[in-house]
Design a protein around this nucleic acid. Sequence first.
DNA 1: TACTGTGAAATGTTTCACAGCG
DNA 2: CGCTGTGAAACATTTCACAGTA
Lengths: 237, 237
Amino acid sequence: MPIGSNPIDATPAPPDPRDIPDATVARLPEYLHALHTLSEAGEKTISSEGLAAAAGVNSAKLRKDLSHLGSYGVRGVGYDITSLATHISSVLGLTRHRSVALVGAGHLGAALAGYAGFTKRGFAIVAMFDVAPELVGTTVGGLPVHHIDQLHKVVGAEGISIAIITTPPSAAQRVADSLVKAGVTSILNFAPCVLDVPDNVDVRKVDLAIEMQILSFHEHRKARDNAAIAQSVDKVA
Amino acid sequence: MPIGSNPIDATPAPPDPRDIPDATVARLPEYLHALHTLSEAGEKTISSEGLAAAAGVNSAKLRKDLSHLGSYGVRGVGYDITSLATHISSVLGLTRHRSVALVGAGHLGAALAGYAGFTKRGFAIVAMFDVAPELVGTTVGGLPVHHIDQLHKVVGAEGISIAIITTPPSAAQRVADSLVKAGVTSILNFAPCVLDVPDNVDVRKVDLAIEMQILSFHEHRKARDNAAIAQSVDKVA
DNA sequence: TACTGTGAAATGTTTCACAGCG
DNA sequence: CGCTGTGAAACATTTCACAGTA
């Protein structure tokens, strides 16, 4: 019998988190954010159309996404904002507090350490690490900077499972290895390089230059389209 | 006759950039980066297997991606690193130099302004904007900070078509409106909010809290899996 | 009636597996 | 022979359109 199946029990089928598509998971935080905003605005209830608009997707996609979490709407009415927010939070594992380590106390690291948006949405960077002697021992963004040798000790003591890498790419793989050895199982990587990690470790990558290059492609395409239109106008004229 | 078709000319079919899938476009910068690294290491030629490993994808995907750009490999040998890099650069529109505006001279904006990775990969932030009187007129990350009222003038003068928003979310929509009015057609948005822009404007969003929440989901799932395994071990024991 | 939830169709992406070429 | 390029199959995601329900 596969783990998680439930052949006898007649309870309403607790949706296995493995069955939620990745594309849906990536949008749940958007929905959650939109729900919080609506809640602060004093709304109690919202239609799929309204929530979809607030999250920047179409309503069919929103309804399909939410259907993966089970049935939480009321036909003819919409969704209860509070209870849907609670439910999405619990699916995302945000009920449990999560401590985060940040490795690389440069400009980007400092900016992230001071970023209120993390704290506001349930995460706390509890420790920073670097190798530079002039940084170790100081505080950056209100957080003490430890030497990277302390990683294993601090990660263990604070129960950290998520880390952010903002080092130069040349150091990133070594840092990732240390993090994995220390017990970290999720990494957000800002260094522009590919990280090699065991299967049980999740890595998400944010590469600013890549984002810019994708935009560049679209600029290039738009320029070509305009040129083509100009040419066909010329032809007609 | 559809724009871009070429019914008479017998040249090798210049692949229409519109036909390159989004998923492929998003990976081309990775391939380009890997090619540059290989080139610096003195390599001349690389197999699909080797390049795929360097870029962190599998080789079938890489070959399919490159096939959208036309045929640039040599069967039995691999790809010529220099010519493939040149070709990808040209598809991405990186042959043309691109000036970038950055709006929001806070910590994150300052970190990005000083980020060498941009310059190294063909982009130059040429102007920063903010509203805070204590910032306007100073230099941040080596760049003068203009008041946001100057946006239209500077964007026009510098021929800027790409902008980065690192303002608080409450200001982001207003900033986006000003950018669009000034002639910007691509935006990289770091503010955690949905931007409403005309169809001809491309927006890419980087939301750090969302990345963390996606990692949180995976942590949560792993914890459940472990619990399920522990339980089934208990049962057997 | 006004909405959600969802099969089914359409579209997009990845992977397979091998033909074909240098 | 070794490797690329690519149809075709498998898989994933999005969209459509409507049955069903409070």
